[in-house]
């Protein structure tokens, strides 16, 4: 993948659907944010572990917006610049909770499966 080649070496590639959830979680935690803010926040939280082309976030944002999960509005940022702010819509905090629970179950499961020693394992 070209992404891995021109960006860092050991970063995680995002799984399909995870970015949407990350965006939702960020908005839920931080309140209304603009695209750059969301991207920065995700990078910071992941400890720069996540391989994120910041531009990718805009596809995720329009997807979420079209589903009606987030709303968008032009406003003025802290440093007095025009920016588009996204906010999670009220009813979709519930959805976020569901999705979070789903991912947590999945991670636990994956962890368990991967922890299972395979045959011929030297450990």
């Amino acid at each position: 993948m070209e992404r891995t080649s021109d960006m860092g070496k050991d970063r995680l590639e995002l799984l399909q659907g995870t970015l949407d959830l990350m965006v939702l979680q960020t908005l839920a935690g931080m309140g209304p944010l603009h695209g750059y803010g969301i991207a920065r926040r995700i990078e910071q939280v992941s400890g720069e572990e996540v391989l994120l082309n910041q531009g990718t976030i805009y596809a995720a944002l329009v997807r979420l917006q079209q589903r009606g999960w987030i709303s968008a509005e032009w406003g003025v940022s802290d440093n007095n610049r025009k920016a588009k702010f996204y906010a999670i819509t009220r009813q979709d905090r519930k959805r976020l909770a569901q999705d979070t629970a789903y991912w947590q179950r999945l991670t636990v499961l994956m962890g368990r499966v991967l922890a299972f020693p395979s045959e011929g394992d030297e450990r």
Partner: peptide, 17 residues
């Protein structure tokens, strides 16, 4: 570089939109 290609982002956005 961090943004990862304006044209590509536009394209992805358009496709999703």
């Amino acid at each position: 570089v961090r943004f990862g290609g304006v044209a590509r982002a536009m394209e992805e956005h358009r496709e999703a939109r």
